[in-house]
Design a protein around this nucleic acid. Structure first.
Length: 560
RNA sequence: UGGGGGAUCGUCUAGGGGCAAGACAUUAGAUUUUGAUUCUAAGAACCCAGGUUCGAUUCCUGGUCCCCCAGCCA
């Protein structure tokens, strides 16, 4: 548990609910819901909503439902329903037995529609889509009343029944609310309540050919489930009068309060389903679970933990202002979690061979390494040391710059958990590229030796050439080269895809203890970052995803 | 141009008529067999203009800028 999980920050929504309770305005217990449409995979933006809804319910001693808002048969699929459940559960939330579908309410919704017709509050219109648009008016001009607005109740009932019976073609008829064609709020200019869709619904099959719209189904679904606080994003703000209209006119006993908050935007990535789908379809990424994707599945494969994502969602806060969160915050929360929990191992990503001249050929020895200095309970393990090892190419310089604490000819470094070595020579091939480094070691410098406490400037990681495991390592960079920004802004100035968002390193060499690591397990590769074993791993070859690098002030300094 | 929202450190988020707080990021230092972690410190903000007031970032008035709405998507 991170501190932020113990004390989720107080935001305007929580304040509002608490004040309502104090004022005795809400006698019912708090009941929220997370209502995704099953037309795609969940992403980090959904995580914000999930955390908000479930956490608020929990904090106020209430409940949170999972509801699939499946009112549009042309886009939805059972695969997505499964995926959504899996992701919400993985994030650590439990909806108990309260898994609901808007499609389960189709019959009740139909009854409410009849009620509206009987009250003279809804009518069947057979204007074409194009005519409807013309009649609606513009932002600055009032709309015109449809010539069909004054049909009799009988006529409306008759036509609506025919709509349901499938006697009309798609797009020819629609049930509209009778509100106000001159309203300055476009949503109130007789919005559609039902439309004809001759498509098979993934759950109700062909039982229906008319489907309720969001504006009709959502408030009633909330009411049917006894939702008290219907949290949604800012773009629904001017739907609220319609939300309230539907509940008032349908005379439901439960009238939930709709509260809007700003959706999450993350810099250097995209969040809209449309753009994510485009990345997948164009093959810019491998799929919805590509570790570069901001989807829950992508983050999971990348190595993110549910706790880190929850902590992130707590830290971004909830407000009404459009905002773009920096990646740095997400990276901070995963480092914070993994630092505490993940075992340390050594792996060399850019190998350079080191030959220790005064270490006997054929000899090996075990050295003890701490699994996690942040958690001594994780114990120790043995590493094999030998005459030939790999070290990181970055850890050697022929012309070391100032403040370079690592290896160069004539200089010493400590090998983590092992000896201090001194570089005495460089072996190169005809092209002048380094083939191996010749070193000597100080036999007394190991832990327990007389020189164990001797200080040298740097300590570097290593693996034994004869014992290390061949490994592929995938390094990820942001999908976009620019922070981009608010979602729709980037439609005009198309975001620039980072051509280097994936870098594959192979062969890398990992310590032998990783041999039996299971897919999905996370490690800190000492001095490098946090890595997660990818499902692509084979017996012969491990594949690791870099979740996030360690902070590296030296690399930063070098760039300058 | 109609309506609905919004504007506080680089980025998020608090606050509220009298000291502008926290987190991330940044910078400096200490500790360190990870240039990590940890610790300490520093710099860094109230959209603009008037008004009310002893005092305005907060209240009032008028601007400016940004976001959303003209789907039979959600």
């Amino acid at each position: 548990m991170t501190p932020s999980e113990n004390h989720p920050p107080i935001d305007f929504i929580r304040t509002m609910i608490a004040e309502d309770q104090d004022a005795g305005r809400s006698v019912q217990r708090v009941h929220t819901r997370f209502p995704p449409e099953p037309n795609g995979h969940l992403h980090i933006g959904h995580a914000k909503s999930i955390c908000l809804n479930f956490a608020i319910a929990q904090e106020f001693g209430g409940l949170c439902n999972l509801r699939l808002d499946d009112t549009n048969p042309t886009k939805e699929h059972m695969d997505y329903v499964r995926s959504i459940q899996e992701d919400v559960r993985w994030l650590g939330f439990d909806w108990g037995d309260r898994l609901y579908y808007a499609s389960d309410y189709f019959e009740s919704l139909y009854e409410y529609a009849l009620k509206l017709i009987r009250k003279g509050k809804a009518y069947v219109d057979n204007l074409s889509a194009e005519e409807l648009r013309e009649y609606r008016g513009t932002l600055t001009e009032a709309g015109k009343k449809s010539p069909h607005r004054q049909r009799t109740l009988e006529e409306n009932l008759y036509l609506f029944a025919k709509m349901r019976a499938g006697e009309f073609e798609e797009g020819t008829h629609v049930l509209r609310a009778k509100i106000d064609m001159a309203s300055p709020n476009m949503n109130l200019r007789d919005p559609a309540l039902y439309r004809i869709r001759k498509a098979t619904h993934y759950r109700t099959g062909d039982a229906w050919c008319i489907y309720p719209t969001y504006d009709f189904a959502h408030p009633l679904s909330d009411a049917l489930e006894g939702i008290t606080h219907s949290l949604c994003t800012l773009e629904f703000e001017d739907h609220r009068p319609l939300y309230d209209w539907v509940l008032d006119e349908c005379e439901v006993p439960c009238h939930s309060q709709q509260i809007e908050f700003a959706r999450l935007n993350l810099a250097h990535t995209v969040m809209s389903k449309r753009k994510l789908l485009k990345l997948v379809e164009e093959g810019q990424v491998q799929g919805w679970d590509d570790p570069r994707m901001p989807t829950i599945k992508g983050l999971r494969r990348r190595g993110y933990t549910p706790a880190a994502i929850r902590s992130f969602c707590d830290r971004v806060g909830v407000a009404k202002r459009d905002s773009v969160i920096e990646m740095g915050l997400l990276e901070h929360t995963i480092r914070e979690d993994l630092n505490r929990t993940s075992p340390r191992v050594m792996a060399v990503l850019h190998p350079v061979k080191v030959i220790i001249e005064n270490y006997p050929e054929g000899q090996t020895e075990e050295v003890e390494a701490v699994n996690n200095p942040e958690d001594v309970g994780q114990g120790v393990r043995q590493l094999t040391f030998s005459r030939e090892i790999y070290i990181e190419a970055d850890d050697f310089r022929e012309d070391p710059p100032k403040k370079f604490f690592r290896l160069s000819v004539g200089q010493e470094v400590r090998l983590r958990y092992a000896y201090i070595i001194r570089c005495v020579g460089v072996e190169k091939d005809q092209d002048g590229t380094i083939v191996a480094l010749r070193c000597t070691f100080d036999p007394e410098s190991k832990r327990g030796g007389t020189q164990a406490g001797r200080k040298v400037k740097g300590t570097i990681h290593w693996v034994s050439v004869g014992h290390a495991l061949p490994t592929e390592v995938r390094i990820y960079e942001p999908l976009l080269t620019k922070p981009s920004a608010l979602p729709k802004k980037s439609i005009t100035s198309e975001p620039i895809l980072n051509p280097c968002s994936l870098q594959v390193l192979s062969p890398c060499w990992a310590e032998a203890s990783l041999k039996h690591a299971s897919v999905g397990s996370r490690f800190q590769f000492e001095r490098q970052g946090y890595f997660c074993l990818d499902p692509d791993s084979m017996n012969q070859k491990l594949v690791f995803n870099r979740t996030v690098s360690l902070k590296d002030p030296w690399a930063k300094m070098e760039k300058k």
